[in-house]
Design a protein around this nucleic acid. Structure first.
Length: 541
DNA sequence: GTTAGGG
DNA sequence: CCCTAAC
């Protein structure tokens, strides 16, 4: 019989296991409609996220074609909608999202801090150095100019396009719906319990430096952390606040200060963002680099943002002064005034942490004695029971200027067999997961998988793992199962539709054959079991 | 801990 | 790859 079946399916080598496990295919999952009642709200968020995603796609296509005038229009509408976007409830449901794009951030430097392309965050006047020393550093120029962000809105919405042309933005379910609290991430067969940042948060709240900063900006920090916080750009006692609904000038300058009834009317075209550092090994991929930059930028913008005011290149520190006392008046030069976006609570997580290193997360920095100390917070020691070196990830960053808050992101090499994880944007205080980096199966891996499945079948992924991928720590049996699923799909579609490294047709043929064989085998087994059950129940009755 | 299947 | 129900 066995031999007959082999011939029937066109190849040799299958060994029906002596004690095949009962297939669990009968264990079909209840379809999602069952959850609908409980998830109505979540579905609403999902819908919004989808709409937002579509909008982003459209924007991406159209924004690059925008001419300068169109860009100006966008900027104005952005500013004019601020009043609405001040309400967290509105923004949190995605109805006033604005977007800027971060893709190609490194490649698109602009030299004019005020005239960079409006289609994305641009890092201006930056220099890239030390590339050969596994340390990519983006420095501001000597004159202190900081990177520039165009099209900044109260609701910052970051989008990145990775190599697969997928979009990662904060419209993802991770941040928009109740799935924000993700299950603890898994590394291999283990799950990681992550520590909440709230403890650190309370500590920092008690520092004098922190309180001073709060008072300085006159805003009581809400206890709840929104993904992106909304903040008034104009204070109630600010003369510029009372009458600014019209009067935005149309010229090309980044800022206009024109006089009308002793009011100063401002048009903010760009903000400066603080410098940040990224440390990444030479062996990392460009995709990893992009993710690293994305992570750093996201970390900056997902935290509390302050607006800093610069006049004539100098920072205005006294918030109680009036505009005229500070020197901001109608006869200012157009470019005399500038605004900066300053992250108050930097939270940059490390990622791509190898398995044998403690996963770390950098809490909100505490200003102590004019130093910005980013403290390391090790995750549960139960995951990493070996080689925990507490000092490895501790960093101290001098912050003499009080302006250039810095973030440092470390990206270990990913060319190991460990379960490297890639960053996912995290919201402060919430449990956050790190997604593993994508590591496509090589042809040899596919071959090993096919060979193992031919022998063992499609329902014994643990055995497949032990047989063919025992040494590959980064491939779990779930991965193998998933890969098989995609292989079957790949084999069924036309070669033109296939993406990624091409899998030899010979292997794909074997996939289809093995899949057919084992599907048939399983269904036949199931029929046999059903028949046995029926006869047994018949006897009992 | 494994498997299956949807996302 | 992630998540998780069902075993």
């Amino acid at each position: 019989m066995v031999l007959h079946k082999r011939l029937e399916y066109g190849f040799n080598g299958y060994q029906v296991p002596p004690t095949p496990r009962a297939p669990r295919s009968a264990r079909k999952r209840v379809s999602s409609w069952k959850k609908n009642e409980d998830d109505n709200q979540m579905r609403a968020f999902d819908l919004l996220a989808t709409v937002a995603g579509n909008l982003l796609l459209e924007v991406d296509d159209s924004v690059s074609k925008m001419n300068h005038e169109e860009i100006k229009t966008v900027n104005e509408s952005t500013i004019k909608t601020e009043d609405d976007s001040l309400k967290p409830n509105v923004c949190d449901q995605g109805s006033c999202s604005k977007t800027f794009f971060v893709s190609e951030i490194i490649k698109a430097p602009v030299t004019d801090a005020c005239s960079g392309p409006a289609s994305g965050i641009t890092v201006s006047d930056c220099k890239i150095e030390d590339i050969n020393h596994t340390h990519l550093k983006i420095d501001p120029p000597e004159n202190g100019k900081l990177p520039v962000v165009n099209n900044v809105d109260c609701n910052l919405n970051l989008v990145i396009k990775d190599d697969d042309e997928k979009f990662y933005g904060d419209a993802r379910p991770d941040t928009l719906n109740n799935k924000t609290v993700r299950a603890p991430p898994r590394i291999g067969d283990r799950r990681i319990r992550r520590l909440s940042a709230s403890k650190q948060w309370k500590v920092s709240q008690n520092t004098d430096a922190y309180r001073n900063k709060i008072n300085c900006y006159k805003y009581q920090r809400p206890l709840r952390d929104y993904p992106f916080k909304k903040r008034r750009l104009y204070q109630s006692d600010n003369p510029a606040n009372s009458d600014n609904k019209s009067g935005f000038t149309e010229d090309g300058s980044s800022l206009d200060a024109t006089s009308k009834d002793s009011h100063v009317k401002l048009k903010i075209k760009s903000f400066r963002v603080p410098e940040f550092f990224i440390e990444i090994p030479e062996t990392a991929t460009i995709s990893s680099l992009k993710r690293a930059v994305m992570e750093a930028v996201t970390a900056i913008f997902s935290g509390e943002l302050h607006v800093g005011v610069m006049l004539q290149g100098k920072r205005i520190r006294d918030d109680n002064k009036t505009l005229s006392q500070t020197g901001i008046c109608h006869d200012n030069k157009l470019d005399a005034l500038g605004f900066t976006l300053e992250p108050n609570g930097l939270q940059v997580s490390s990622f791509l942490c190898p398995e044998n290193q403690p996963l770390t997360r950098y809490s909100a920095p505490q200003t102590v004695d004019n130093e910005l100390v980013i403290q390391k917070q090790a995750d549960s020691p139960t995951i990493n029971t070996r080689n925990i070196v507490e000092s490895d990830h501790e960093m101290i960053v001098n912050d003499k200027s009080d302006l250039d808050s810095r973030a440092l992101v470390t990206v270990p090499a990913n060319n190991t067999d460990e379960l490297a994880v890639a960053p996912v944007r995290k919201s402060k205080g919430a449990e956050a997961a790190q997604r593993r980096i994508r590591r496509p199966f090589s042809v040899s891996e596919v071959e090993a998988l096919v060979e193992a499945v031919e022998k063992l079948g499609t329902g014994r992924w643990r055995d497949v793992k032990l047989r063919a991928f025992d040494d590959a720590k980064h491939r779990t049996y779930v991965d193998l199962k998933d890969k098989w699923k995609t292989l079957v799909h790949t084999a069924r579609i036309s070669p033109q539709q296939r993406r990624g490294e091409p899998v030899p047709q010979e292997l794909l043929d074997r996939v289809l054959i093995a899949h057919g064989y084992w599907s048939h085998h399983q269904s036949k087994n199931q029929l046999k079991l059903n028949h046995q059950l029926e006869t047994q129940t018949c006897r009992l009755v």
